[in-house]
Amino acid sequence: MRLVLGVTLAMLLLFLGLGLVLPKWILFLLTLALAKGLVVLSVVLLMHAGLVSFGQGLFFATSAYTVGFAMKLLEIQEAVVLAGLGMATSIAVAALTGLLLARYREIFFAMLSLAISMILYGVLLKAYGITGGTDGMGIASPTILGLTPPPDRLRLAMYAFTLVTVTVMISFVHRYADSPLGYTVRAIRDNEVRLEYLGISVQRTIYLTYLLAGGLAGLGGVLVALNVGHIDPQLAYWTTSGEFVFVALLGGTGSVFAPLGGAIIFEFLRTYAFKYSPYTWQMTLGIIMLAIILFMPEGLWTISKVFARSPREWRLSWKRSA
């Protein structure tokens, strides 16, 4: 526990320091990756329970549009308030849809969550008069704790805000994973029926996890909206949700840091694929993904374990899962 806290703090300091030296475009990419990393983390949380959500876009978009409307109609500019509001609405949406979804497993959970997210996509698209349809709506720069960052320091301030928010969430999720609830969730994945015989309500556990995942994805949506400065219904489209799932698998599900690492690496992979093979970036990305799946069966997180293990063990583990 203490170790993780230390690692978290060290990472926080490291990333803050990075913010001061990195070129601004990389900083922006990193901000975006951290924000999306939260959504990926929410996908991973559900995966711990054996659930694959192809509909995290639901919360991603709900909170982003909450930010949009709070700015437009309520004239709220404060990032902390907006983050709270965004999380609250996405948890509220999760509380509703969770009642339904907590009963479903496997692909039925995946497809039903996809369907609900796509219905939101349709609503945002159709409610065109107020949402701007697929052209979306603009998001102004927020204030942070009442302060208005000067324009040339805005990106750095937003990066710091994103970083701190993400760090707080990471430590929270880490605590959760270590709590009885967290253990129960992983037990569900292993054997749901046995758990019920032990007198634990599987549905309730899944429902709570789903709420947490909804809140996390919602927060990610707030951060993306504030940083990008533009939102559109694409946030709720199934390909967006699908991407989160793929990044989750790419990063690995072994640690709370893995989704962040996965998100960062994915953003950079894609950016360099765009840069160096603008005509075939999809193929480049696909081949790299295949390579990762083949050689790092537990996701990119495997790299961190290589240092902790002897090579022989590593080979064995590869064989076992192959």
Partner: peptide, 22 residues
């Protein structure tokens, strides 16, 4: 220098920054 417009608004915002700064 030619780049792809794919990837949605957030990607394009990031790509514009890269075009200008990188």
């Amino acid at each position: 220098v030619s780049i792809d417009e794919a990837g949605g608004a957030d990607k394009q915002v990031a790509e514009l920054r890269r075009l200008v700064l990188d």
